[in-house]
Design a protein around this nucleic acid. Sequence first.
DNA 1: TTAGGGTTAG
Length: 364
Amino acid sequence: MVDESVILFNELDPSLKNTHVRNVFMDGRQEEGLRLMDRMRSMKGLAPNVSTYNCLIDGFCKCGDVEKGKELFDQMNEVGVSPNVITLNILVDAYCDIDHIVKAVDLFDQMLASGCSPDASVYHRLIYGLCKAGRMDAASNVLSKLKEAGFRPDIVCYNSLVRGFCKKSMVDKAYDIIKEMEEAGVKHDSVSYNSLIAYFSQNGNFGLARKAMEWMINEGHVPTIATYGALIHAYCSNGNIKEAMKLFNDMSSISKIPPNTITYSIRIESLCNNNDINGAPFLVDDMKAKGVKPNSDTYNAMFEGLKENNLLEDAFILMDAMIEHACKPDYKTMEILTRWLSTVGKSEKLTSFIQGYKVSPLSE
DNA sequence: TTAGGGTTAG
């Protein structure tokens, strides 16, 4: 069979062949790209270059096949194409994304040992990935290596560390980082403040959280949706709905920040936790009116509330709404529904739901 | 002459 894409490829100027294959990979046509790469290798004086490999590896990683990406990375070494910092960044990001932190660190160490000199971005992204995974010892270790290599952490890197330490309740370490930022002349921003505000409010220290909000304003930073979100969530968890609502209103009226999916989900979750499931549909209507799209977390909060109140028929209607609005259930949705529906002998509804069929008797 | 592009709230 004649392969049209190969014929077209053959006619291209040699100088354009790598670009063409890159475009094929970036377009998500991995199989076709691989065929063209084979073709290239068989042509005299032509070979895929590092950027072609990078597009290919990135394509596989984005499709979730990171191991295939790593295989191709190894293949690069075999065929004599040296990986560069972009190759390394693609793989480090991909490993961090799927929480294969050890592999990300191994790859990084391997590159260091092989004499490749990563630029600051590789350190930055690895630190971010490690902080996100809560691996603060490893993150601190990479931070030291970054400094040894003569680089400096930037604001994003510092903020990742502040957040990581706050999440682990290692607030002294977070303060150390803030101090280091100040000494290094890197000015903290609203993101740095938001991590602290979230930490204080989660621990019920609302006085300090509000104080930090004041400091950030005095320093010329504007509170963001995350500032309000952290506080609203903490007040809701603490049962102080009045204060939460005040902030919700202040956010729109004073700060002119419209609520988003997360802010609404926080409030819906709070209603459900306080046995006020009847209030949830009104909030959903309000979201719709404001053009804010519910996501799986919004639905999950409502499913939890309906389950607590044993409102099975309402759950079926909600499952239909989820399908109708093309909102993909996540692992948490599946967990809630599996447990609930199997207990009440309605597992077949879950099967239909997964297959994308309506489940409510009202819609039949 | 390319390729990747990291931060905060639930």
